[in-house]
């Protein structure tokens, strides 16, 4: 690891100020992703700003939303009684990610900011446009079993690795960020971006901005929500494909639906057309299959991830069946 300057900030303002005029400075909170990347020289910030003392840990209900501080720990959110009762999808998604120890360290903000686990991104001797713009995408013609099927570009086919974010995008969350000019609010779906020709940029956050909270509007999805994750072992592995499914049911009829996928794109992948197709329908396997078919439109496979075209709709159906209580 390279040497770096280390500073502590205890207010949002001081944190943001510490970033000014230093494009190679980074915030650090849990450090579970950044320290790993620094050890492998994938990221080499010359300055770290420790923001753990900034008071952003609270989870509070207010005016039709629940606001989760950016520094709330993943385990704290997953175990929070209000979250478990009113937003079980989020709790389930959190517990499907990483390990108990990592969830005790990782923050909500850090989870949102985590970087792809693409092997080519991680090995500094291999080409990767995200790590080193212009070096090429190693995965495009390489070993891309874990890679994206939606929204790819010729420059990057990496996936966003988070489980939590799949639930948050499904639940219409908003990311609240602070910068030198004050706060702004970014709908979760617009926070992460597709790689296009600039895969180095994971999201729309500016370098001198910091996430201060995530807000989720009140909803009626708490009775029928499920997070279904398929991975190469039973726990502690990144998703091949995961699906967050939440339904608002009136008897057997679906009033509202929320669907999002993980492990398929450079961002948590919201499936709005599929959601629409479910509204007003009876919750049956047949209906879910139709929704899954709609969801998969536009998917494109590479040499080693063609199985995701088949696995994807199956996981959507399974997630919906579980959410609807059909299993």
């Amino acid at each position: 690891m390279i040497q770096f300057q280390f500073e502590r900030a205890s207010t949002v303002k001081a944190s943001v100020n510490a970033m000014v005029n230093n494009g190679n400075a980074r915030f650090i909170a849990g450090g579970t992703n950044l320290v790993d990347l620094m050890k492998r020289n994938v990221m080499t910030p010359t300055k770290l700003v420790d923001i753990n003392a900034v008071p952003l840990k609270d989870i509070q209900q207010k005016n039709g939303v629940i606001s989760i501080g950016a520094l709330a720990l993943n385990s704290q959110v997953a175990d929070n009684k209000i979250i478990q009762e009113k937003y079980p999808l989020l709790s389930k998604a959190l517990n499907a990610g990483a390990s108990a120890q990592i969830r005790n360290m990782a923050t909500v903000g850090g989870n949102i900011m985590q970087r792809t686990r693409c092997s080519y991104f991680y090995d500094t001797t291999l080409p990767c446009n995200k790590r080193q713009p212009g070096s090429g995408c190693g995965a495009l013609d390489g070993l891309n079993r874990m890679h994206a099927i939606f929204g790819t570009s010729k420059d990057c086919i990496a996936v966003h690795p988070s489980d939590m974010c799949v639930a948050l995008v499904a639940l219409d969350a908003t990311v609240v960020v602070a910068g030198p000019k004050g706060e702004r609010r970014i709908p979760f779906e617009e926070f992460h971006r597709l790689p296009g020709s600039q895969p180095a940029k994971d999201n729309t956050l500016q370098n001198n901005e910091m996430i201060i909270s995530v807000e989720i509007p009140d909803n009626e999805f708490n009775k029928n929500a499920h997070y279904f994750k398929v991975r190469d072992r039973a726990s502690y592995a990144f998703a091949l494909i995961s699906v967050a499914a939440a339904l608002n049911m009136d008897g057997k009829v679906i009033k509202e639906a929320r669907l999002a996928m993980g492990g398929v794109a450079h961002k948590p992948w919201r499936l709005k057309e599929a959601e629409k197709s479910l509204v007003g329908k009876q919750a049956t396997e047949e209906v879910f299959k139709q929704a899954a078919e709609i969801a998969m439109q536009g998917a494109k496979a590479y040499k080693y991830n063609a199985f995701k075209l088949k696995l994807g709709p199956n996981v959507i159906v399974e997630a919906l069946k579980n959410a609807a209580g059909l299993v």
């Binding site: 080519y120 090995d123 001797t125 070993l143 072992r233 039973a234 502690y236």
Partner: peptide, 30 residues
């Protein structure tokens, strides 16, 4: 039987699954 696989990218002769994150061994839940 179910998960161990050291995968090499033959263009470079380098493994792409080379830590416990990519090369899976059984965990408690398995």
């Amino acid at each position: 039987a179910l998960m161990e696989d050291a995968v090499m990218d033959h263009r470079f002769g380098r493994y792409v699954t080379k830590d416990f994150g990519d090369y899976h061994v059984p965990v408690h839940a398995d």
